[in-house]
Design a protein around this nucleic acid. Sequence first.
DNA 1: GTCTATATAATGATAGAC
DNA 2: GTCTATCATTATATAGAC
Lengths: 214, 214
Amino acid sequence: MSKSLAKASPPTSGDATERILAAAEKLFAESGFDAVSMNAVAELAGVSKANIFHHFSSKNALYLAAMRNACRRSTPLMDNLEGTSGTFVERLHHFARAHLAHLLENEQTSRLIQREVIENDPQRCQELAEQVFGDNFARLVAIMRSGQQRGELRADVDAGMVATLLIAANMFFFQSREVSRHLPDVTHLSDDPAAYSKLLVDILMHGILPPKQS
Amino acid sequence: MSKSLAKASPPTSGDATERILAAAEKLFAESGFDAVSMNAVAELAGVSKANIFHHFSSKNALYLAAMRNACRRSTPLMDNLEGTSGTFVERLHHFARAHLAHLLENEQTSRLIQREVIENDPQRCQELAEQVFGDNFARLVAIMRSGQQRGELRADVDAGMVATLLIAANMFFFQSREVSRHLPDVTHLSDDPAAYSKLLVDILMHGILPPKQS
DNA sequence: GTCTATATAATGATAGAC
DNA sequence: GTCTATCATTATATAGAC
């Protein structure tokens, strides 16, 4: 029995550190930093409170570790966009749908990041921008610019603004679902992300003005 | 000296109940429900903690009262939109600018509502939708529809989706300013809401596809 | 209506046995 | 690494004088 084989029977699933991180991510995402007690994390993770403090120096350290963990897992979203084939419209539509689906499938992480964004702490927001969103957003903008160079997209629109609008629409869908459900004019969309993406891309592509008739 | 004139010397400004509500709104907006202690509210309002419990039965009751107060104050935003003259494009541009300015000027209320939205409590979200957003959103959609009937706007776009997109873009600007500041491709916008609105309306109106060349 | 003083519970964090 | 037991602090909420 070599010493490296000794730890083959985890108490519940994964080692304690992972279970603590998973519990913390879930609870922080659901309720926010202040509403979550170390007691609650310990209970959900199936360890003692003191054990958490053995692995993480403070509640804040645990929160940051859970955040980094979630962000790291959330990064490779964009990887399929650049490889996608088809017209520019099709590729953008594909991205819009994939991005929204990603937000909804990883609801926990999305909420965690969203909470962090609205907290508005300058340093934390800078870290988020540079370490989490930066690359993906830049790649989305680059795709817009390449579309412009190829003439598939108006040359005089602001590429950053187009990307922003797309992300904004999806974030809004994600975070306002529960409210939209009770607004008569958009009820039909709040449960149908695919339909939402279709309408979004349609407007984004063609605008809302009537076609010229002269 | 009639009895109705007796209370003409407020301790700081407004009566205690108002000062408590103002303090609560500010602190809840800044930090969220759980991060705010009744002690902090009492200190900012210049009253004793016990006095707050005399006016409000619990911390939660205080929070709800502050929310309702803030929402009530935030309602009459839309009132100038319908009266505005000019082309449909001009009116929509005017609304986009006014709405974003409103969010930024009433940052406290905007944040308070935003926190409530992401909390996602079904009942609270329904109340928000029906009592706060409902009317204004419906009026915005109605304006879109009337624009469609007059031929100033494509008849086959979803009016609710256009309205959603407009609100989404503005909400996103408001809540992501601090992050956008560190995204290279949109830095130029995060401090210039007017420029943001202009780009937004341009894209919304004309779309991003190049004009037909045949 | 407003205060001081207090009750009671829960919080984040630590000590020290195993 | 994990636990039980405990610390000091702070929280919401109440009692009762004025």
